[in-house]
Design a binder for these strands. Structure first.
Lengths: 198, 198
DNA sequence: CGCATGTGAGACATTGATGTCTCATTATGG
DNA sequence: CCATAATGAGACATCAATGTCTCACATGCG
């Protein structure tokens, strides 16, 4: 504690600003710097002191999103146990970041001159590796590529975050909805006469 | 003056402009009116003669998206045969519009003062009704609500359109990827018929 | 208490997109 | 061939967001 400096209100909680901005931009991706500042309870000037500009803010959000994603990946221990359980843990751990990820997912198109891209690539690889492990262990079907399964997971995370935010489904169902659909699909599998062929 | 009948057929192909704009905005949702005009091969002035402003353009795209969606819904004959086959037909029919839908899906947040909203609601209802029919017929599991299945379908359509546009999966796999994941899930099931070979 | 720091409020110029206008050009149809 | 109409090019004002700046205020610290 001795190394912490106690000043005035002490350098506006950067993390709080980022999370508020994430929550706002998730709902309204075109929100103004002024709106972001008001949402965070600070002035535009102060916001601009902490983040050089809108670009820097979005970059910071991207870094936050990557960090939270990797934390979730670590916490989910993707290498341990059945792959299906690892997927379940992953979705559970990543849920709090789903909104932010959904925002970044749509905003990323703007960053063609990538740089943080390596962070996303690393995350993609770790998730794809999980699906690949599940395929090799015989748990997952092999006609759906790990790349597609990874992307589909992103899409489902975004859809679920959206529909929960809209209040059209209960927040508690978040993990169940995604995991059950992603792993089991919409079809009933215990009924007789099930046939799958196209 | 009798309104323009069939005078100079120079009349810029409105549909072509819309589809070009859709393609561009799908890739870069912040594209300028000038960029849209250039992409469509017309001048900004002409673009502005046909669409009062950016708002009007996006509205027109929304109408186009709704129309294409409803055409797909009609062509898929959702009421006929097994629900799972209807889902397959739906995805196949809706594929060409997936990019446009993905764009509108993210852009819709801006339309809080809805008006076209009724169009989307009607589409939502028709798709949700399909999933409900599948549940009642015993084909689909009942622990995943039609609302969620509908939203999940949108998410998967968007993800698939994106990953195909990125060139990370083959365009030919579009329908298969979505239908198999949405209906069957990633898990291998020990039921008859599921593709598990090589 | 006085100093330093961080903040809020607001003025200001800048930038980029937009909407509107005019005018010349081209193509169409009678 | 001529009148009409649609287009392209560009000038122009407008507007909103941004980035930068100054100044006053509050609070922590010596």
């Amino acid at each position: 504690m001795s190394h912490m400096r106690y000043c005035c209100l002490m350098a506006v909680d950067r993390d709080h600003v980022l999370r508020t901005a994430a929550a706002l931009l998730t709902r309204k991706s075109t929100a103004t710097m002024d709106e972001v500042a008001k949402a965070a309870g600070i002035s535009r000037a102060t916001l601009h002191r902490h983040f050089a500009g809108r670009d820097a803010l979005v970059r910071a959000l991207e870094s936050l999103g990557i960090a939270e994603c990797e934390s979730a990946l670590d916490a989910a221990r993707l290498d341990e146990g059945p792959a299906r359980d690892a997927v379940h843990r992953l979705v559970r751990e990543i849920e709090p970041a789903a909104g932010l990820l959904a925002f970044l997912y749509t905003e990323n198109q703007l960053f063609e001159g990538e740089q943080q891209n390596i962070g996303w690539a690393r995350i993609d690889d770790r998730i794809a590796a999980l699906f690949r492990r599940g395929q090799q262990s015989g748990e997952f079907r092999i006609d759906l590529s790990p790349v597609w399964l990874t992307e589909a997971l992103y899409g489902l995370l975004g859809s679920a975050a959206w529909v929960v935010a809209e209040g059209r489904v209960a927040r508690n169902d978040f993990t169940h909805m995604i995991v059950e659909l992603l792993l089991g699909g919409a079809l009933r599998h215990h009924t007789t006469g099930q046939r799958e062929e196209s």
